[in-house]
């Protein structure tokens, strides 16, 4: 209403902005659309015309995958590992962060620093020695051999996110709790946890996504095919059925559906998770 005449220059620059944004959008979407549509084609169709719509539409690739017990076992394995990792990371990291945030004791900063080293720690460099440690603990060929290290490597970030959160909860609350005869654990359970729900959600979502996508550790640890997670299944199917591009694409697309659903639901948490860590303030 307020804008009576829009300067021509402004319209032009607007247009340029949109063109750029749409071009990037296309760059993001085209590979994904290609994969989704590819699953509806035959390998022959894809080979003949890499660019094009399914003609005719083939449903056997998707239906075959959905009917495959191996696929569902992998969905279950991925889900179990992601949830177990998250359910362990939440108590471990929040208890530790609580202590490191609210209580003063000798060695506190040293312990905190000890945890933060993990943020710089190149996980890949740890893989081979970690694998040997898991072997000594008899955790190879066992989902817990993936879950426990994932928890361990997830702790630093979680603690680093949670500690300031706990710190910023006013001291008055703690005073009141002490006066009410609340010990540290009850204070943690009844006051801290409910108040830090946003931070905990962020950690959960980041952990689930990270676990869902993990490849290297499961590759080396899950030595039995019935324990495989989806990334291992996708990798295997892409070598095993390398000749059947359409099937590979269908399998791949179906494997990312859960992650995309989670992203659609919890985008806010994911984005705030990655930014809260990095951006000051």
């Amino acid at each position: 209403m307020a804008v009576a005449t829009i300067p021509v220059r402004r319209v032009l620059s607007r247009t340029v902005l949109y063109v750029v944004a749409l071009a990037v959008l296309a760059l993001i979407l085209v590979p994904l659309v290609y994969a989704v549509l590819g699953g509806f084609r035959t390998t022959g169709q894809i080979a003949e015309r890499p660019v094009g719509l399914p003609d005719p539409w083939i449903f056997t690739n998707y239906l075959g995958t959905l009917r495959s017990p191996a696929f569902w076992r992998q969905v279950w394995n991925s889900t179990f590992i992601a949830l177990a990792t998250t359910l362990l990371i939440l108590p471990l990291s929040s208890l530790a962060a609580f202590a490191l945030a609210r209580y003063r004791f000798r060695g506190r900063e040293a312990i905190y620093t000890f945890f933060t080293i993990g943020l710089l720690y190149p996980v890949v460099a740890a893989t081979l020695p970690l694998w040997l440690t898991l072997r000594d603990l008899d955790l190879l060929g066992n989902p817990w051999g993936v879950i426990l290290p994932q928890v361990a490597f997830g702790l630093p970030l979680s603690i680093v996110i949670l500690r300031p959160f706990f710190r910023n909860i006013p001291d008055d609350l703690e005073d009141a709790a002490i006066i009410d005869g609340c010990g540290p654990l009850r204070f943690y359970w009844h006051v801290m946890l409910p108040l830090s729900r946003p931070a905990l959600s962020t950690i959960s979502v980041l952990t689930i996504v990270g676990s869902w996508n993990a490849f290297l550790l499961p590759l080396l640890v899950l030595t039995r095919q019935d324990q495989w997670t989806l990334p291992l299944g996708v990798n295997n199917i892409s070598t095993q059925y390398g000749t059947d591009t359409a099937l590979v694409l269908a399998y791949t697309v179906l494997s990312i559906v859960p992650a995309l659903i989670l992203y659609a639901i919890a985008e806010r948490h994911i984005v705030s998770g990655v930014t809260s860590g990095a951006v000051k303030g």
Partner: peptide
């Protein structure tokens, strides 16, 4: 890769 952004800021 899988590592998440680092919080670099120290709490107040």
């Amino acid at each position: 890769t899988q590592s998440q952004p680092t919080r670099v800021s120290q709490p107040s």
